[in-house]
Every structure is written in C-alpha cells, then in structure tokens.
Simulated assay, not measured.
Amino acid sequence: MFKVSNNLIGILNLVTFLLSIPILGGGIWLSHRASTDCEKFLEKPIIALGVFLLVVSLAGLIGACCRVSWLLWAYLLVMFLLIVLLFCFTIFAFVVTNKGAGEVASGRGYKEYRLGDYSNWLQNRVNSNKNWNKIRSCLQDGKVCKSLADDANNGFEDFYKKHLSPIQSGCCKPPSDCGFTYMSATVWTKPANVTSTNPDCTTWDNDAKALCFDCKSCKAGVLDNLKRDWKKVAVVNIIFLIFLVVVYSIGCCAFRNNRDDNGYRGWKGNP
C-alpha cells in the first residue's frame, strides 16, 4: 500500500509533467514563428525550461509511484541543487539591485536616471555591446516611445507633467541638463552651443529609430526597470523556495518509504 508521501509526490509531479507539455510546445512554436530578436532570445530558455520540467517530473513520478529508489534519489538531488541555486540567486538579486534610484527633476512629473547610480555588475551587463544591441533591438521592436510620439495632446506643459516610465524617460527624450528646446515628445532642437558635459546630449537623435537608445540614460532606465522586476522575482522566489523545501521534505519521506519497502521485500524473499 502506498504511503501518503509517495502519493503526494506522485500527484505534484503529474501536475508538473502536464504543465511542462504546453511550456515545451510554446518554446517549439516560438522557435518556428519568432521574427524579432526578443522572441528569438526567449525561445531557447522556454524550451530548456520545458525539457527540464518534463525530465524531472517524470523522474519524481516514476520514482515515487513505481518505487524506483535511484530515480527518486536523482529527483531529490536535483531538487536540492535547485533550492541552493534559487537561494543564492535571491540573495544575489537583492544585493545587485540595492543601489540606484531615479532623481526627481525640478518641475517635472517624471524622474531621470543616471547609469553610475547602479551596481557595477549591472552596469557591466548593459555596457557590453553584445548585450546592449539585443536590448536596444527589443526596445525598438517594442515601440516603447510610440505612445509618446502619437499623443497629440503632448503640449510643452502637458509633457513635463507626464509620469513617464524609467525606459521612456531614459530612451525617448534627451536629459534635461542638455537644455534642448521642446518641439514634440520625441523631437527636440539642439542649441547652437551645448554647455552640458553629459555625453547623452551628443548621442540624442530625432530619428525615431535612434532617439536616445544608445544613451547612458536609456541604459539606466532599463536597469531601473530591471531592478524593480528582479525585486518582484526575488519575493516570488522566497515563496517558491518555501514550497520547494516542503516538497523536498515530502520527497525524502517517500525515498525512505521506498528504501524500507525494498528492504522489507528483500528480507521477506529470503528463505
């Protein structure tokens, strides 16, 4: 007769197995339909996640329900490593996102962002040309500035009262200290002599495909958005870690049941 822990592990892994199928299918579908760099960037992680869940859930399901101890042992080992990795990532996420915040601009409804305010590790990630080319491509494909450019009510005063997202503030307009003259949300006139030493002032371009996508302020806006997302993920990870520890504990009970049951059968089979 199956023990409760074996039944629970079997049910949990059956649910995980069923969930892995649409995840894997979605990754395969995306690999054939992806047309942008952002979509192509997602296809491999989604497929890898689907395969991982499929294999691990099968190991846990067979190990618990068919009393295959070595499969259940492998399942518990993977679970233990996953718990350690998630714990380390959660701590790391809190550490690297501890620095950096937008600065309130005088008379503005939005904040402005400086790359140097964020952790060195994050700065190095966006300063890498390989990484930034992919991020910039995603920003352009996502048309993050289109809503500002299409807003016919963007008068001078209305624009400065807007609550822009970090990416819109950093990528869709020049920094305030450049002293540019407002024409529209994404069109600005450079003064004859730019007194600011901010390199973003020379990087800005009114071309809708360029704007400030190569500016340091744009990279800072991306990092501020990433910082918020990572903190949310870290909180979810804590909840998920508690769940994994509970499942791991149940799995250990199921493994002990397997070992005791196999030992009992071996003892019973002896003359």
Rank of each mutant, 00 (worst) to 15 (best):
M1P: 11
L8G: 08
L8W: 13
I9H: 00
F17P: 02
S20D: 01
P22V: 12
L24F: 13
L24C: 05
I28N: 05
I28K: 03
S31N: 10
A34F: 03
D37N: 11
F41C: 14
F41W: 14
L42H: 01
L42F: 04
E43Y: 10
K44E: 15
P45G: 08
I47R: 14
L49G: 02
G50E: 12
V55I: 11
L58S: 14
A59C: 15
G63V: 07
C65L: 15
R67K: 13
V68L: 12
V68Y: 11
L71V: 01
W73H: 14
L77N: 03
L77V: 07
L81G: 04
L82V: 04
I83C: 00
I83Q: 03
V84L: 15
L85Y: 04
F87Q: 10
F87W: 08
C88D: 01
F89R: 00
F89V: 05
T90A: 00
A93N: 00
F94L: 02
F94K: 02
T97R: 09
N98F: 14
K111N: 10
E112A: 10
R114I: 14
G116F: 09
N120K: 15
W121H: 13
L122V: 13
Q123S: 04
Q123R: 14
N124K: 15
I135H: 01
R136G: 01
G142T: 13
V144A: 08
K146Q: 13
S147R: 08
A149L: 07
A149N: 13
A149K: 05
D151T: 06
D151C: 02
G155H: 02
L164N: 13
Q168G: 08
C172G: 11
K173V: 11
P174V: 06
P174R: 07
S184K: 14
S184N: 15
W188K: 09
K190H: 07
P191I: 06
P191G: 07
A192L: 11
V194M: 15
T195G: 00
T197P: 04
N198A: 03
N198F: 06
P199R: 06
P199N: 04
D200F: 06
T202E: 11
W204G: 03
K209F: 06
K209M: 12
K216S: 14
S217E: 05
S217G: 07
K219V: 13
K219T: 09
G221K: 01
L223C: 00
D224Y: 13
D224G: 09
R228F: 14
D229P: 12
W230M: 11
K231Q: 10
V235R: 10
I238N: 01
I239D: 00
L244K: 03
L244Y: 01
V246M: 01
G251Y: 01
G251I: 08
F255Q: 09
F255E: 03
R256A: 15
R256E: 12
N258C: 14
N258Q: 07
D261M: 05
Y264N: 10
R265H: 08
W267I: 12
